[in-house]
Design a protein around this nucleic acid. Sequence first.
DNA 1: GTGAAAGCGCTAACAG
DNA 2: CTGTTAGCGCTTTCAC
Lengths: 348, 348
Amino acid sequence: MTDSNPRRKPVNATMREVAEAAGVGMGTVSRVFSNEGAVSATTRAKVEAAAARLHYRPSALARGLKRQSTNNVGLIVTDISNNFYGEFAQGVLASAKELGRHVILCASGEDPATEREYVDLLVEQRVDGIIAFPTGANLDAWDTARRIGINVLFADRAVAGVDVPSILVDNLGGARRLTEYLLALGHERIGYLGGPSELTTGSQREAGYRLAHEQAGVPVHDELVVRTRFTRDTAYASATRLLNSAVPPTALLAANNILGEAALGAIRDRGLRVPDDMSMVMFDDVPWARLVDPPITVAAQPAYAMGVSAARMVLTEGAGASSQTVPVEVVIRRSAAPRHIDSPVPGS
Amino acid sequence: MTDSNPRRKPVNATMREVAEAAGVGMGTVSRVFSNEGAVSATTRAKVEAAAARLHYRPSALARGLKRQSTNNVGLIVTDISNNFYGEFAQGVLASAKELGRHVILCASGEDPATEREYVDLLVEQRVDGIIAFPTGANLDAWDTARRIGINVLFADRAVAGVDVPSILVDNLGGARRLTEYLLALGHERIGYLGGPSELTTGSQREAGYRLAHEQAGVPVHDELVVRTRFTRDTAYASATRLLNSAVPPTALLAANNILGEAALGAIRDRGLRVPDDMSMVMFDDVPWARLVDPPITVAAQPAYAMGVSAARMVLTEGAGASSQTVPVEVVIRRSAAPRHIDSPVPGS
DNA sequence: GTGAAAGCGCTAACAG
DNA sequence: CTGTTAGCGCTTTCAC
């Protein structure tokens, strides 16, 4: 760093100054930096030399104001330290980079007030598009975002009463197949550790769990169905509650990786072994699912690919993008075993 | 969404239109929305009513251009799906939100060319500050960023020849204590799976490993020291190479969580048990470290807290922020055991 | 307390 | 091919 006085008011050269230094008009400088219109090689060289000498960097602010488009896109996730969102974000970032866009990241923490704040903020920033894992609230905020010309894309969850293109996953199918797998192993008391029913990720997965039971003719024991938030704060307590049922489950389905983490922790803390004492499966194929012993059977959502598609949809297809549902893949590993003959069975 | 024709050119109301609708001057509207200067209650009400009617949202672009400051900060990490960066980012986001700032997220993938691209881009966006995990290259780009008045803060790694405030961690101390722990357990062939020596995170951790050996009077076996990238791509192969040494190590220190993940995977794949056949410890306390059986002994970096501090430093202290080094906490769990009497020992 | 006016740095016609 | 000009939407003196 060569600046001897870092506290002086920074003087970032303007386009006008570059033009003067190069002895050309502003329009020419603009053409050079935006790569539009034709500029003779000599003129271009002069401009570039002057720009380099002055450490000139164009201002995206001014450009955006003039062009009425920033090249930014907003991404609202719940919690970026959750590997699912991390993978998704990597996908968005990769896709955005390829398209020459920036992403402004926001974490709502699943809180509607925070979400509203971020939507408003992103609108003020005049982002070209917003990719969000919506809480389901703030319909009016989303509405004004769209009205103002911002392409909105919802990820993972559909929101009732709003016609916004979405990229969804086959939650019902995934949960159903996971449940069928457990049922086929002979389990009849399968605990379900799920998310809030207001989120479609919560309700659809629960629906899949119930559907599988129905089709197998196995009754669902409502005391084995516990709903909690999809975040770490309440997960462990809920998992413990489930395991403490009067007649405990012999297998357990966790509706996302955070819940799975809590469930596995709770199982361990009670001295139970997987899968001998307790079978378990979960949504989300996070790195640790393969690493624990035994490795966990999961319903894998293609998080990275979803992020890539999401960015592409919101950036290139715009408001006209059509919703799509991506499949989840059930990956059988070794965390579930056939029910022991002597396991408690309802009515026995 | 009430708009019947989503494809029409979006008409976001301007401040001038709000002013006209409210029958006041633009200056007044500005005062209302920026909460600066005094406005009579009645006038304010009129303005707010008009604004609501028109779905007016101020433009951060225009404001930024005029004020010469966006309220944005750039964050350049390596890979946001890596839990360490995810936690760090959560900290930055929390802190930024509190200070009314937005975060533009970039993932360099540890690639200097990508990093340069992002630095240039963030400069063009005129962010108020940049928090980065630097690759060590692109000194000139960092220099022009600072010259233009952007506060730069390096995280995790120091860069030689550049005087930029940084938030570092006690890498040497952490690696040293981890190694001492293994040495105290009687291990004399400790494998080191580390990062590139160009990164201070790489070199300092290796230095800690070597220092502990030196002080214990135990020679370092260079064939047990393998350096690789800190990313997933090459980690597994390097871990395997280490385990395949002619005389294999009895314990292993992985220099970050990705390397630890790879090491644990490789250990498993070779049918070795932890800690009976192979002790292991690593840097980074990620969720899975507690979840695997046995849980892994780690040197924990306070990622979230670092993110919080980083944002605060770059946003409130500015260019004058003084570098700080945060301690790492060694958390002993059960992934390391005393060396077996019959383990291969050099010269025996 | 409030209005008018001058730009912030850039792009996009439009002439030449 | 290149220079000139009129704003993009907002903040900020400066009068009133």
